[in-house]
Nucleic acid binder design. Structure first.
Lengths: 335, 335
DNA sequence: TTGTATGCGTTATCAT
DNA sequence: ATGATAACGCATACAA
């Protein structure tokens, strides 16, 4: 381990001078600084992040909290895309990413304690379970936080645009002649509530009547439950002409059910997914879906959090809405 | 921030005593220790990981290096499952996970420097690009490392069993009467080489002749290239009766091509995937595939690395092979 | 412009 | 059984 002290000795200057030179302070002679940097590099000097953090009380490390009931958060492509984007943009700004969880080591810490223990400068919370007391404790703590797809009143939030997205989907489907539109939605979350409300509202704006039996409950990322809902919808006396799914992956369950009944997409029934994951783009017929801009969501989260960390005084806590984009495919027939 | 000093003051003992009590040293009086622990808890004391790391030269943090040419590593379900498992088991042993990358902040560090800077106690390397000089530098450094699916001579490796898996796949297909078996493989990596060799060897052991045109090159996780390869195979004069794909996701490309030609699975052509991702289990017909035990791979990687970190002297650097499992589906017809 | 000295919070050594 | 103290590597206030 080569330390500042070693470099100082080699350079015949004081430790403080080396520190300043390496950190680009202006009160060091031009050539002195240059030669110090040069020698430090030659010696393979690397700052010790721990020592620096201890001294400055800043770890340059941001925590990521993914709580998923199924603990499959990472295998959900939407989240892994966000995580990747978050990582890229945080790293660009000099921050590393550490996962936060409870149960670290033999005894358990809650999220706040874990983040505090690691001296995270901030935490990004992507979770379905915002009612979790531990999550609430973290959000209300002095640690800067940013939430995804959920708004706390004292915490910056990055929201995917669930209102507009449903508007666009319904409008698209309606413009192709459909007015018997069914919606299979995911489990009850604030995101789901928004989508449902927007679904009803948009339908109403077009004068579309939505019978109760056209709105089915299923689970996100779960083809089985969407398959069951699909079966129910297909069994209706007055069958819908188009079904909206909770997400692209769940649609697979619907697809299976539809094919099983000898129906074909989109000739006999039209369908729309949600998320725009890779899968939706490689299925044939190509799935009509709504692409959430996960890259942008991750980026906004990183930038907002870092801004909050670095400029706490002037930071304005509000929320930003990230627009997605309808991706027309070949699964909605013009009728 | 409540520190050891604060607790010491409250307890009317010295700072050293508190430290010992909290760390379970035996040279502290039973009741003293108890009351100290009690009070520390009440005061909400949390150790400062940075200070501790500085002093002990151990960060209780392990780095994860995912290099993917497409930088889509995380969106590959196989890897995200491994990552999740790694995380769970590392956390259980008291270690947190931090991503390692180059380009941290404005200037770039290589992987070794990054890991060193963060004082990672060890690094897990999951990468396709093991030729990368920076990866090699890291592996050859003093930092304990564990590689996934690649063997360096001085580094513990966790290997998925690519030899046996191909044996099982070919045996299964052969047992159902196929002897015209085509293999679409991924890009050239050591994993691919093993699978190809095992494919040829197993075929030979059954007396199956494999014409050169039955072995096609495509890319992992890329339905397009597998789709093209499928087209070529289907155009063959002497068409194979079964096609093995690089992975489940790539199979989608083949599926599209097969359907496009009006053929059906498995009546007209049989197919087998690889990986056993969620998707393979929800498609209908259910895809016959080989499930890699990503959970076990992540676990073994975590345990081996931590063992290497905590018992460097007695640690034996070798490799462990994690067996997967053939998951018969409905895509291979008995002929 | 450069150097000295202090302390961040902890662990560990050595006294007592 | 308990306490005083040094040291980990660094940044910084202050002195020179």
């Amino acid at each position: 381990m080569v330390t500042l002290k070693d470099v100082a000795k080699k350079c015949n200057v004081s430790l403080a001078t080396v520190s300043k030179a390496l950190n680009g302070h202006t009160d060091i002679g031009e050539q002195t600084a240059d030669s110090i940097r040069q020698i430090a590099k030659e010696m393979g000097y690397l700052p010790n992040a721990m020592a620096r953090a201890l001294k400055t009380n800043r770890s340059n490390n941001i925590g990521v909290l993914f709580v998923d009931k199924t603990s499959s958060g990472l295998t959900h492509e939407y989240f892994s895309e966000i995580l990747n984007s978050l990582k890229v943009h945080a790293e660009f700004r000099g921050y590393d990413i550490t996962f936060i969880s409870s149960n670290i080591g033999s005894f358990s810490m809650d999220y706040y304690e874990h983040a505090k223990y690691r001296r995270c400068d901030g935490v990004v919370i992507a979770s379905v379970d915002f009612d979790n007391p531990d999550v609430i404790k973290l959000v209300n703590s002095e640690i800067p936080t940013v939430t995804l797809d959920y708004i706390f009143n004292n915490c910056f939030a990055v929201m995917s645009d669930n209102i507009t997205s449903m508007q666009e989907i319904v409008s698209h489907v309606y413009s192709l002649g459909h007015n018997k539109i069914a919606y299979i939605h995911g489990e009850d979350t604030s995101v789901t509530q928004k989508r449902i409300a927007s679904f009803y509202k948009t339908c109403k704006s077009f004068g579309i009547n939505v019978p109760d039996e056209y709105v089915k409950s299923a689970m996100y990322h779960d083809p089985r439950s969407s398959g069951l809902a699909t079966r129910e919808l297909l069994a209706l006396e007055d069958r819908p002409t188009c079904i909206l799914y909770p997400d692209d992956f769940s649609f697979i369950g619907g697809m299976n059910e539809i094919e099983k009944q000898g129906l074909s997409i989109p000739e006999d029934i039209s369908v729309v997914g949600y998320d725009g994951i890779l899968l939706s783009q490689v299925l044939r017929p190509k799935l009509t879906t709504f692409r959430q801009d996960a890259e942008e969501i991750g980026k906004q989260a990183a930038l907002a959090l870092i801004d909050k960390i670095e400029n706490p005084k002037q930071f304005i806590t509000n929320h930003v809405v990230v627009k997605g984009k309808l991706i027309p495919g070949d699964t909605v027939k013009r009728i």
